[in-house]
Design a protein around this nucleic acid. Sequence first.
RNA 1: GCGCAUGUGGUGAAAUGGUAGACACGCUAGGUUUAGGUCCUAGUGCUGGUUAACAGCGUGGGGGUUCAAGUCCCUUCAUGCGCACCA
Length: 973
Amino acid sequence: MDEFRYRYNAKLANDIERKWQEKWLRDGTFHAANPAGDLVGADGEHAGDKQPFFVMDMFPYPSGAGLHVGHPLGYIATDVIGRFQRMQGKNVLHALGYDAFGLPAEQYAMQTGEHPRDTTESNIKTMREQLKRLGLAHDERRSFATIDPSYVKWTQWIFLQLFNSYYDETYAKENGDIGSARPISELVEKYESSTLTLPEPYASDNNLGGKTWQNLTAKEQSDVLMLSRLAYISESPVNWAPGLGTVLANEEVTADGLSERGSFPVFKKELRQWSMRITEYAKRLTDGLDTIDWPEKIKTMQRNWIGESLGTSIKFCVLAPYEYDDPNDANTVPQVGEIEVYTTRADTLFGATFFAVAPDHEILTNVQDGRRQSIADYQAQAGKKSAVEKMQGEKTGVFSGLYALNPVTDMMLPIYAADYVLSDYGTGAIMAVPGGDQRDFDFAKKYDIDIIYTVSPAEGLGEIEGNAAYTGDGVVINSKSEHLDLNGLDVETAKNKMNEWLTSRQIGEVQTNYRLRDWLFSRQRYWGEPFPIVYDDEGVVHALPETLLPVELPDVPDYKPRTFDSDDADSAPETPLSRNKEWLETDLDLGDGVKHYRRDANTMPNWAGSCWYYLRYLDPNETEHVVDPKNDEYWLSPFHNETAGEAGGVDLYVGGQEHAVLHLLYARFWHMVLYDLGHVKSKEPFHKLFNQGYIEAYAYKDARGAYVPADEIMVVNVLGQRENRYSWNDVEVFEEYGKMGKSLKNAVTPDEMYEQYGADTFRLYEMSMGPLDISRPWNTRSVIGAERFLQRLWRNVIDENTGELLVKDTEPDAETLKAMHKTIHYVTVEMREMRPNTAIAKLIGLNNHITKLDVIPKKVAENLVLMLSPFAPHISEELWSRLGHEKSLAHENFPTYDAKYLVEDEIESVVQINGKIRAKLSVSPNITDDELEKKAFESTKVQEQIDGFEVVKVIVRAPKIISIVVKEKVQDW
RNA sequence: GCGCAUGUGGUGAAAUGGUAGACACGCUAGGUUUAGGUCCUAGUGCUGGUUAACAGCGUGGGGGUUCAAGUCCCUUCAUGCGCACCA
């Protein structure tokens, strides 16, 4: 049994791994030096004069379920890249914190009946242990959780920054749309000095105490400011999910009107809630995408969500004819108001044949008495419809009796209330052009309204006419009146001409619209950050001063949310925090003596904590600033290293693509506000974003649909059938492919991998499975390949029986030297391009090469170990130390290659004849085209092939290829 | 419905328009081991051919550009993802 005492196997791997993990921790090997504050390194403010490199994973959420092998994929990838960058001489910052507030933690706590803080903290502990065994090169001093009071303090502080700011459009314009969030005190000054008139209704309503700021009551002043604050309370229609017992942001509601979490029905309900004025940043959130290095797909998703569109806002006179009026003579009909619409196709105004407004549009208050009932009925009916019904059902509407006057044709167009028009987009009203819009077309068909086509494709409308709208490009037709003639123009030109006409008459204005809505920010949940906000007895809103932060969660008798029947649209939210009256009602001194206040009983959504955690990694213990300006500048400012862009930000952010429009949009918004207010120097939080794929797995179901353990499946290959069949306990089962999970009985845990193979093998296998951004199936059976590689490398360096060092300090032979330099070259390129799978293949190739040598030169072994170390750091450290090095290799330079060794003496050149490879020649890489051609035609094989044919063409690409085109000789008898 | 991505051996996958299948799993044969496993060596896209030489075919299907296409273009099918009354 003493044989192979020193063989690299799971047991030895585990010993080595624990040893090095402890040593790294003890030595602070992966501590990243800050230029300022408590984490400055030995080199002080210069942080070693090294270029910074900040690599980051998406915040893990410590659920109680435990990890499977899919979870660490991204963490391993960032670790590999971080270690590689460190070996490129960078000061690498890599740490991991925990996102710990939010619904899943709360739900898990409810299942177990324990307090969310206890379950969350124990989950974090478990997850830390599981991840620790991976040997991730994290700076553990920089870890934290969003529930830590020292973290909550700054989350609340940022909230107050938003609360105490407003968006100043004039300032934005004068400063190139940058620096537009300004302190609310500047707005107060403007109102005080009457530089700015008060908003309606305050400006014109003398009953409210006059038109000046000074004679508004404190409550009124508070209400006025609330209209401008970036974090504000308003009474507005919000997404209420009775089954969840909380309101939700638009981003958390799916297209078919269900909550993203739990799939509960969501209803629009008028409620007083907190929102974030993200819409003010719509343009910058869109434009900023051009300055960052993100996957196009994610950028597209954000662009779509923000939904920028360039169009025209047009005002129309609204007429309400009585029965005795002549509806054809606009002059005789009384005007009751104006209606404004938004369109991206102003060129089609000649084709507008009716108007449609959202059922709750205010113009409908002008309908005549006889119509009121039918409008009210329709409004009630529309309110009950679910999103799906609206979308899939036939379009409906009801005529209002009102007409809009088309300014370009002087025609009176009937106005319908129709629920296919959304009240919260544009102006909630449209000019309907059935000839140019399929939705309007469907409606016009149903209600028998005229259809006028204003654009015709070059080949004519043909079958389209009367059957569908035409939305494509073409020539403008039917667009001429005494005011304007667009006929014959192309769409773009016609649009411009129409816009000019509308603008000159001051009835239209070119306008950019956004689909993005403000971000609903309050939740009726227990497990979240409390708002640092109190209300006095007059209802005036007060921000707590920084000295009173953090506001910690109180204990409540019951932290469960009050939920309702999921279809009970009439229910109203009740917050768990309101159950603790002692906490809720409080006496505070906010600077003008102790007074009674009531706290805000909502909590923040869990996005709050994940909106700024990257800043906390920079300065985890900072108490004076959200982040020390020096540290922020060093790590994040524009052009802080050779790959950082004009916007600055985290150098590499790796995570799944599921956060495309939630976390990633919110975080960008907060960052822009912090930038405007001067707290950070980067314009965007994340410079490069990379979406890793997922590890998936096969799962097996029996005939009843129950999952059976995937690792106990027998594969049955029936002879003559292409597809495999599967059985479990002699019962046929059926394969499906998808996620890995406990409930699917196909989960494999990292712990099993550590035990069977060790962390290095596990890491190496995950990195070699395939490209990082592609999802791939887990296959435990294949892991052995990674272990064999490490074992062979170990055996090349260490005698398995004696433990002696086998390498010798000899010069490598020419071939080995070449192989080594080529490997270094290739691996360096692949690491930069984030292709670990091919880099590993080349490392295996080099190891296979040296395995065949009698004596392994030390230099080659060392370089191989260094290159391997980002993937398998423990075995690499062990070999490195056995090779005679005292210091950790973590800060060694990555091997460099000498270009002279990349050149081959002889290479194989291919001769193609009519596209087929017919001969291979061994030639010098420096061979000229002429020489290669000559050599090719001298080859007997080539001569055999072209004998009897006429050479038509020869293409030579020395030294790799020569292509000869021949055709049959025309025999001239 | 619209948009995007992806289709390569038995499997995971490689291939700046220039030798398709690197590397690995699996499989086959041989060797070491007094069992199995480990480990070592060789082979392994498919078809034909004697196990050889060699030939033909081959990157979802069809068509095109090119001396040359997995790669570029058109078209079509399948799968996945995203969006979906946004005027």
